[in-house]
């Protein structure tokens, strides 16, 4: 027993060493993809941020139509850049919910007045908890959720004009 204990440090080191060698041979992909893609949307219950719009309660919206979930913030400049694309998606019939990260009611109202309002619901995520539970690493990000409530796609960064057809196709497939 004592013999084993004495050689334990070397044994542990050999294991770590092998892992590091493996990591060095196969350098990793640096984009942080969410591990939640392909899994059901985690249970979220976010209070409404605006007086005239519902917050997000996944237990209430689980069944039904495929939706998009946009993680955004009024202080985020790329979110301004993607706003016209979100409006286009909405006009094409997409239902878009939103999670406002670290934001205030007044700022979001001003943001939507300037850039248009594509959102059906907006949940207030002041502490970034919902964002973390979605596996989102920044703003903006957009998730596509199918009719069974499973996350089927994740778009990292602002939505460019050329991304709109792709997202619509993903939404169509998610029915």
């Amino acid at each position: 027993m004592k013999k084993l204990l004495i050689w334990l440090p070397l044994g542990l080191f050999v294991i770590v060493f092998a892992l590091v060698v493996n990591g060095l041979i196969e350098p990793s992909d640096r984009l942080v993809r969410s591990a939640m893609v392909g899994k059901p949307l985690p249970a979220l219950r976010l209070p409404p941020l605006l007086p005239d719009k519902d917050g997000i309660d996944t237990s209430a919206t689980r069944s039904g139509k495929p939706r998009m979930l946009n993680v955004f913030a009024s202080w985020c400049i790329p979110c301004v850049a993607e706003a016209p694309q979100l409006m286009k998606l909405k006009q094409a019939g997409a239902e878009i919910d939103a999670i406002a990260v670290r934001d205030t009611t007044g700022d979001v109202q001003a943001f939507l007045a300037r850039n248009g309002d594509p959102y059906t619901r907006i949940g207030d995520d002041r502490a970034m908890r919902a964002q973390l539970s979605l596996g989102s690493s920044g703003v903006p990000e957009t998730f596509v959720i199918d009719s069974r409530g499973v996350i089927v796609d994740q778009h990292i960064g602002d939505i460019r004009a050329e991304d709109v057809p792709k997202l619509l196709a993903a939404l169509e497939k998610a029915k």
């Binding site: 070397l10 080191f13 060095l24």
Partner: peptide, 28 residues
Amino acid sequence: DPTRGSFLLALLGLYIGGALALFGARVG
């Protein structure tokens, strides 16, 4: 610089592994 990593790693294996092996052999 990942390419230099392998050289450093070899040194690491030599020194740490060597010291831990010495520890195992001698600490008794």
